[in-house]
Design a protein around this nucleic acid. Sequence first.
DNA 1: GCCACTTCCTTCGGCGACCGAACCAAGACC
DNA 2: GGTCTTGGTTCGGTCGCCGAAGGAAGTGGC
Lengths: 419, 419
Amino acid sequence: MPPAPQQPSAPAVPAGLPGTAARVLDLVASGVVSSRADLVRELGLAASTVSARVQELVDQGLLTEVGEGTSRGGRRPRLLRIPDDGAVALAADLGSHHVRLAAVGLTGSAADVEEHALDLAAGPAATLGVLVERLRALAERQRAAGRTVRGLGVGFPGPVDTEAGRVVAPSRMPGWHLFDLRDRLADALGLPVLVDNDANVMALGEHRTVLPHLRHLVLVKAGRGIGSGVISHGTLYRGAGGAAGDISHVRVEAAAERPCSCGNIGCLETVASGASLVAAVRERGLRVDGAADVLRLVRDGEPQATTLVRQAGRHIGTVLSVVVNFFNPQAVVLGGALAAAEPLVAAVRGMLYERCLPMTTSDLVITASTTGPDAGLLGAGHAALRELVHEAPAETGRAPAAPAAEPGRGAGTPMAEPR
Amino acid sequence: MPPAPQQPSAPAVPAGLPGTAARVLDLVASGVVSSRADLVRELGLAASTVSARVQELVDQGLLTEVGEGTSRGGRRPRLLRIPDDGAVALAADLGSHHVRLAAVGLTGSAADVEEHALDLAAGPAATLGVLVERLRALAERQRAAGRTVRGLGVGFPGPVDTEAGRVVAPSRMPGWHLFDLRDRLADALGLPVLVDNDANVMALGEHRTVLPHLRHLVLVKAGRGIGSGVISHGTLYRGAGGAAGDISHVRVEAAAERPCSCGNIGCLETVASGASLVAAVRERGLRVDGAADVLRLVRDGEPQATTLVRQAGRHIGTVLSVVVNFFNPQAVVLGGALAAAEPLVAAVRGMLYERCLPMTTSDLVITASTTGPDAGLLGAGHAALRELVHEAPAETGRAPAAPAAEPGRGAGTPMAEPR
DNA sequence: GCCACTTCCTTCGGCGACCGAACCAAGACC
DNA sequence: GGTCTTGGTTCGGTCGCCGAAGGAAGTGGC
């Protein structure tokens, strides 16, 4: 977001763990590899190098050997796994009207998931207290279970300045503009905190846990609003101002002159978001209380709701067809509440196959998120862990004081972005 | 293009020169830096490291010291420059009806530029001979002038499989499908050859020579057809199948049912390309012989042509607005013949400011290409040099036999892509 | 005119990530 | 019971980078 004095062409060092070690953990955690030999094949590094990295991680307690696997015609591989009793991060997936919390380990599972109603629109003052309380309780439970809580990852349903850890100009949520969510949470919980846009953390979650092999993918979060997260070259793509991935405010013909919360007219959001769907269904005389009700109607085969959801899918597909032609990703993953509606997914598929160049869709995966509602939690948790695994290996439970080379960094123990 | 056996998560090593050395050359060539101290500031490396790299390059003859600069309060910097008598690459920018040739040095200038009529649609057999002949003559002239010709970079107006160096399914150019342009030229000229899409090489050219500081930019080539090249994280972005950057076949409302060369209907190309403009102008009863004539009419203030060009700009802007929201680049550069038409540029600007999120346009540069018709040449030449600078430093004139670690590599001395 | 300070650049020892060659370990195959 | 294959380690060596120290050559204050 800052007018960017343009850092001297970024060192491109992914921060966190020394790179290779982090990739080793990722590969083991995601189940892509299970032995040193697998790592050699997957990473393309020399066996000696892999051996050395693995040994370090085992020494640090971040990795363990668990017996041997089956032979493939030679010596049996020694299986590697992430220890269950290892580190976890808290994860919070904020929605406009609810919040989901969980503890996420390096193995990729979301444990102790809970969901609460929480009206973000009421502003930070009214919501932060509850949030902190729940997170404290969650952290306590995890510690009681013998786990080390390493940090907190937060997905926020609006634009986020990830460098500063602040919310930026969210629509329909007065009071949050420039709120320094990261540092507030970090101070209250005594943990390092990472804050990012909800679609971004979902994209990270899907990528890490189910599609780690893919280099380029787009995740579309179709919930109350519409957002998207972009993975390019295997890492989150943020664009010049951190605003990349917005498809919600693209103008679509069908939205004509409808005013949008962004101040413009004819945005996709006004005809394809959960909120707009609810309104449209109500207009047809059906009684619904939210997107969940609409989904129920669709599951029950109610024709009008189904038609509307399908139409929403077409609108989303129309916009995505431009994205697919331009970005040529390997996968388009549909997440958020509406992704549970088969007709919407089908409509998106249809639109993409109809409108995109064959070259871009021939190998394209178009699918609903397989981690479902947990994608955001997993992504937020993983992202938080990723930034921290290089810290103390042991039982300390509290991250060490930041070595702090950076000058302009505020209080707390906030985490830097890989940029 | 290949169904991709999915290489084990690419080593991300940019190939060519050892990375840092290549960046040093780029920075010096583009004029961003002129001394070791500048390099230290720009690269963020230790002074000792920079010194070592520079020394190597000087020893190899790829860099020279040319006296001292002005003091900034201390010792005067020793100025660095790319030697004029250094290496050049031939560059060929192919259009559907003409070809531009030049010799490009590391300094970024295009020398000995020439343009010839050449009908690519006549097929490879009918055109390759002439092309090779012109290139041979050009190479001879350069060698006579004491320069070493290191390779050839080619921009082709259609999809290219850069790994294989082949043209893939170009529309309106029968006979080119799967033609192994790279190896044919390499064999005929005895030079390493690099082939890429024309918009891609233009994007490289603009980025290298005029906007080297930017990390993310989109170049739109609006000529006879419409293409685009994408720079992301400072390097060319190709997408999953090498098809990234296509905006030409996005459906726009105004194109309705118009059939497109791609086999679909309603593509942007059918209402905003140079070819479609010429047709539209003719429909209005004006006599034009090509895009150049249309541009002349616009310059002369002919109202109908101006209206049409402006409308084409709006269509392009409409599609680009989606791209800008999604990709959030730092710059949108308009290249190709039509970029010379002020009304078109203005229309694109208007559309983007009207339709995109303020966050994405607040710092966005929207401009016509400053290198004009040479952008493609510069990009092709630079790309070729980039792949080769690590080769023999001296006067050999012929690249050494490839060390060839890769197995499946064909004849000639083709160049690998940075992937 | 001298001295403090700045800027530019080099020398030197050291570190960390990686590599390849050699080699041991333990299975499958015949 | 060899031979071949796969899995893994040990041991030097390379490469790119770093920081400390210091020399070279300016500017500016007194």
